[in-house]
Simulated assay, not measured.
Amino acid sequence: MKFRNAVLEYRLRKGNDQFVPIYHYPEIELEQILARRECEFFVKDGITYKQLSSAIEENLFIIYVEIYEEGPVDAAILTEDGILLEVRELNSLKGYPLLTSEYLTDHLDVLSTLGSVYTYHQQQEWERDSAEIDEDRKAYVLYVTATGYSITD
Results as ranks from 00 to 15, higher is better:
T105H: 10
K94R: 15
K50N: 07
L34P: 04
V117W: 08
T147S: 10
E58H: 04
L78R: 11
P26E: 06
W126Q: 04
F19W: 11
L60G: 00
N16T: 14
K2L: 13
S112W: 10
D45I: 03
L12F: 12
R88Y: 09
I151H: 08
D134S: 12
V43A: 05
G148N: 07
I151Q: 09
A146S: 13
Q122A: 13
L104T: 08
I63L: 00
V73C: 06
E38C: 10
S54G: 07
Q122H: 15
S130D: 10
G115D: 13
F61T: 00
K44V: 13
I77Y: 10
E69I: 08
L142V: 06
Y149M: 08
C39G: 05
P26C: 04
Y120G: 02
L99E: 09
I22T: 09
R4T: 14
L8H: 03
L104I: 07
R37D: 03
R137E: 11
L85I: 09
Q51D: 01
F19M: 07
S116T: 11
E38S: 14
L111M: 06
D17R: 14
D136K: 03
F61E: 00
S130N: 09
T113L: 14
S116G: 09
D81I: 07
A75V: 07
I47N: 06
V117C: 01
V144I: 05
L60S: 00
R37V: 05
R36E: 12
G71P: 04
V7E: 12
V87E: 03
G95S: 06
E29L: 02
G46V: 06
I63T: 06
Q123E: 13
T119D: 09
S54M: 02
L8S: 04
G95L: 09
R4M: 11
E40V: 00
E102S: 13
E86G: 04
G46E: 07
S130Q: 10
K14V: 15
R4I: 14
V7T: 15
Q51V: 11
T79N: 15
E135A: 06
L99R: 05
D153G: 07
R4K: 14
G115A: 12
L78Q: 13
D74S: 12
W126A: 06
L142H: 05
E80K: 13
Y143I: 02
Y140C: 02
L93A: 14
I56D: 00
D74M: 11
P72F: 04
A139W: 00
C39Y: 04
T145L: 12
Q32S: 09
V7P: 00
K14A: 13
T145K: 13
L78N: 11
Q18E: 15
E70R: 14
D129K: 11
R36S: 03
R36F: 07
V65W: 00
I33M: 01
G46R: 09
E31N: 12
E89L: 15
E127M: 13
